[in-house]
Design a protein around this nucleic acid. Structure first.
Lengths: 122, 122
DNA sequence: AGTATATTTCTATAATTCCAGATATATGGA
DNA sequence: TCCATATATCTGGAATTATAGAAATATACT
């Protein structure tokens, strides 16, 4: 990822409505949500939301697919991953001990059910 | 982490100079770098840089400690972690399969030396 | 074709952010 | 105390962004 794309993504997320939209879409993965449903859920005028969606889309953080009259939006988690990797680039090279704790600290987000035992995936 | 803090951090990173500063400090972990050295390295006027540093600092993304006349800045990776966790919150609850690949995909950033074999840490 | 629904694009105003010059503060040394 | 160094704050003008009203586009149904 290039710096310019990272900034585009970070700027897209650095606005309350758009951050809410993204989190809402993350919550609705992998089904996605129609633009109108998002507007209703977040109580934002549809044209305002539309321009926010377009910014998120340009940043690659969401994707859109038309179904009939509705357009379904989905969060692009891979893009988020790329942004984080960009920020950590050159940090780890040769010194994994610096950012390893960071990555490990993210893991719990995916294992809410198991309390402390770490489960090795098979 | 609250939404307001996340936006503060994202907005802080969504600007080219500040993103460069943060990445530079990540690269210089855990030693940190003096404000003047950062300004020199990135060829930014010191007063401009100072205000950028203050924004990063207010966002919790860097910390500062004075040593004599210099002020040493360090990246706060824990803050970055909190921001990412905030964005993924409510996603995983009950459905780890959604964001697990995301987290796993970040791991390689910390293991540049080993090619494909995954090394279990002891 | 005509009407209703879903979403986007155009537009203008208000608010915010970026930048660097000038100035101020803090530390260390003669 | 006086001077040099390191960094921060104040200031104002230029550029960017946020917001929502109005109009346009796309689809579906009758």
């Amino acid at each position: 990822m290039e710096s310019e794309q990272a900034i585009l993504a970070l700027a897209a997320l650095a606005q309350s409505t758009r951050l809410e939209v993204f989190r809402l879409l993350v919550k609705h993965e992998p089904d996605g949500l129609a633009a109108g449903d998002i507007a209703r859920e977040l109580a934002v005028p549809q044209n305002t939301l539309s321009s926010h969606l377009s910014i998120l889309s340009r940043a690659g953080l969401v994707s859109a697919q038309r179904f009939g009259r509705s357009i379904i939006y989905r969060a692009e988690l891979g893009r988020l991953q790329s942004v984080v990797l960009f920020m950590l680039r050159d940090c780890c090279d040769g010194r994994p001990e610096i950012c390893a704790p960071l990555i490990e600290g993210l893991a719990p987000c995916c294992q809410p059910k198991s309390k402390s035992k770490r489960r090795v995936h098979v």
